[in-house]
């Protein structure tokens, strides 16, 4: 079987990305300079997480069905809730949830939920495959909110958009879901949008990051961030 690739695989390889395996997914582990990338992740770094699992559910019974599977859900739309294994449950409306697999450990939640979808429709919950349709980037670091301010109309600063906040809005004129789940004191934004526009989004973000000396970082840099606050 061919390993699923990121929609920006070519750009990642051209940038010197060292592709490796993390929990069954092929992702960029680093760009050859882990120490500098770990530093950038605290200042401004952009990681591609597109090969990691994610799945969505919608329907009048979606919340109840997910709760029965042990998923902790926020009460309100546009909020995010971290699961025990590091996965993130995002409420996109009153009846739609997006689950992002853990970036830290082998995914168990998305795989479990996807395996259980065959009877979900009886509970009026309908699965939405999100792996192929959405790119998934992580923008991290102290300058992340200032950088997003250049390409997004929503105030992403801590005072207006704290950890756990979600905005479904326009990002560089693309429809996108922005999920803020800080790594300790370091701001971290998960960005998801139409995978057909992934190359454009990646290039736009890198362009916007230039004035803050931002750079692409590998998954190893995100793991280093996570270890710092544990």
């Amino acid at each position: 079987m061919v390993e699923p690739r990121s929609p920006i695989d070519d750009a990642l390889r051209a940038a010197g990305g060292s592709i490796g395996e993390h929990a069954g997914a092929t992702v960029v582990i680093d760009y050859g300079d882990p120490d500098e990338e770990a530093e950038a992740a605290r200042g401004l770094g952009l990681a591609d997480l597109s090969p990691l699992p994610r799945v969505g559910f919608r329907g009048p019974g979606a919340r109840e069905w997910l709760t029965a599977w042990g998923v902790d859900l926020p009460d309100e739309p546009n909020r995010a809730c971290i699961q025990p294994d590091g996965a993130i449950a995002v409420t996109r409306s009153w009846t739609e949830v997006l689950v992002l697999g853990s970036t830290q450990s082998a995914d168990s939640l998305c795989a479990r939920l996807e395996a259980g979808t065959s009877d979900a429709h009886r509970a009026r919950a309908y699965s939405l495959p999100r792996f192929d349709g959405l790119f998934w980037f992580a923008l991290t670091g102290a300058s992340a909110a200032d950088c997003l301010a250049k390409i997004c109309g929503v105030d992403m600063r801590e005072t207006a958009f704290s950890s756990g906040s979600v905005a479904q809005t326009s990002l560089a004129r693309l429809n996108a879901v922005i999920v803020r789940v800080d790594a300790g004191a370091t701001p971290l934004f998960h960005l998801l949008g139409d995978s057909a526009s992934a190359e454009y989004a990646w290039a736009s973000l890198l362009d916007a990051m230039q004035e803050f000396d931002g750079r692409p970082v590998g998954l190893r840099a995100l793991h280093a961030l996570a270890r710092e606050f544990k």
């Binding site: 739309p77 546009n78 409306s93 109309g153 326009s170």
Partner: peptide, 8 residues
């Protein structure tokens, strides 16, 4: 659903 957003 989403709060204040640009009219665009």
């Amino acid at each position: 659903l989403n709060g204040p957003r640009p009219i665009q």
